[in-house]
Structures are given as C-alpha cells and as structure tokens.
C-alpha cells in the first residue's frame, strides 16, 4: 500500500516538474505527423510509449552543468519534458516511427489500412 502511495507521489512530482513541449500535429491521407521541440534531450534519454490508446513522450535534458555554477536567470526551470496524447482508433500505434534531430522529434503514426481513404464507386443501375 505504502509502495503504491510512493509511486503515485513520484508520478505527481514528475508531472509537476515536467515542461510541456511545443508540438505541431499535421494529418494527411495516410497518417499523422507530430513534431515536438525537445531541446537538450539526447536520443538515449528520450522515451516514447503507447499504452492502451495514450501516446506519451518523455525526455530528460542533459545540460552538463559545470560545477559551482549558480543560476542567475532561468526560463527553463525543469530538467524534463512530458506530454501525452490520446490516439484515435484508426491510427496504427504498432507502426509508429520516430526520428530525433537537433532536439526536434518527428513521429509518424500511420493510419490502419482499412482507415486509408478510398473512393467508393457508385453503381448506377
């Protein structure tokens, strides 16, 4: 019981200490492309998860702060990013592909085959 409590407390703390990254979401006929700004996050510290229909993006920053440094001005005041999105049913969460270049994450979530647009021929008798 106490164990669950600590986990919940830890999650709440993580949520409070996390920044919400800016994103762009663009949909086209075959799927959705998501771009997220995650400056300071190296590939190894990025975690992407799809659980049930929730996609979670989490990243830890590696600032490499020198010793004895004190912050005199901070606009970025948390060392991690976190943001979650609810996916819709026609998206194929098993085929998500991700690329991280210079702090920008590009996620491609394709639509399931049956959800791809189709032109329906109308038969006229």
């Amino acid at each position: 019981m106490s164990n669950t409590n600590t986990t919940v407390a830890k999650q709440e703390k993580d949520l409070r200490d996390a920044l919400i990254p800016a994103v762009d979401v663009i949909e086209d006929a075959s799927g959705i492309t998501l771009y997220a700004d995650l400056p300071g996050v190296a590939k190894e510290r990025l975690s992407l998860q799809v659980e049930a229909d929730v996609l979670t993006i989490e990243g830890e920053m590696d600032l490499g702060l020198p010793e004895g440094m004190s912050a005199i001005h901070a606009e970025v005041d948390a060392p991690r990013y976190r943001r979650a999105f609810t996916l819709s049913r026609e998206l194929d969460s098993e085929k998500v592909s991700a690329e991280l270049t210079q702090g920008v994450l590009k996620l491609r979530i394709p639509k399931k085959d049956h959800a791809q647009p189709r032109r329906i021929a109308i038969e006229v008798n």
Binding site: L38, L65, G68, S70, A74, E75, Q102
Partner: peptide, 22 residues
C-alpha cells in the same frame, strides 16, 4: 523564443539557449 537560462560561476558565465531544429 528561444528560452534562455543563464548561470554564473567564479570562472565563467554560461548561457544556455533552447533553440531546437536549427
């Protein structure tokens, strides 16, 4: 944009500019 953090130590002033995708 971009957000900036500034840190100071005895030897240097460190400026961190969060400007992804450039």
């Amino acid at each position: 944009f971009p957000p900036i953090n500034v840190g100071s130590s005895e030897r240097a002033v460190d400026i961190y500019v969060f400007a992804p995708g450039l």
